[in-house]
């Protein structure tokens, strides 16, 4: 069986390679990152894995508040964790 091609994306400027079908949330954890910072500034990471809890929010290509557990990695995607970005 042929090796499925891997997808390269960046999580906070770190290049991560994942196999197709990987969610952005999984990629963020693979990169060793959390996903969002809470209002009080604590790191948070996915809780529900199914689009309900909003703890996995990251910015994708500069667009904030994206639920990374329901979005698949795509080549060249830029993922930013941490505080919400102000303006898009």
């Amino acid at each position: 069986m042929a090796e499925p091609e891997s997808i390269a994306l960046t999580v906070d400027e770190i290049v991560v390679r994942v196999s197709p079908g990987t969610t952005v949330a999984a990629a963020a954890l693979i990169a060793g990152s959390h996903t969002r910072l809470s209002i009080a500034g604590e790191p948070r990471a996915p809780l529900c894995g199914m689009g309900i809890c909003f703890e996995c929010r990251v910015a994708i290509n500069g667009v904030p508040h994206q639920r990374s557990c329901q979005i698949l990695c795509a080549p060249g995607m830029r993922v930013t964790t941490g505080r919400e970005l102000a303006i898009r």
Binding site: L29, R44, G49, M50
Partner: peptide
């Protein structure tokens, strides 16, 4: 609220999503 405290179904879903 610590990272890696996650739902049971939640971790299952994350693993199926490539973790």
């Amino acid at each position: 609220t610590l990272p890696n405290v996650i739902g049971a179904g939640g971790l299952d879903a994350m693993v199926r999503g490539g973790l």
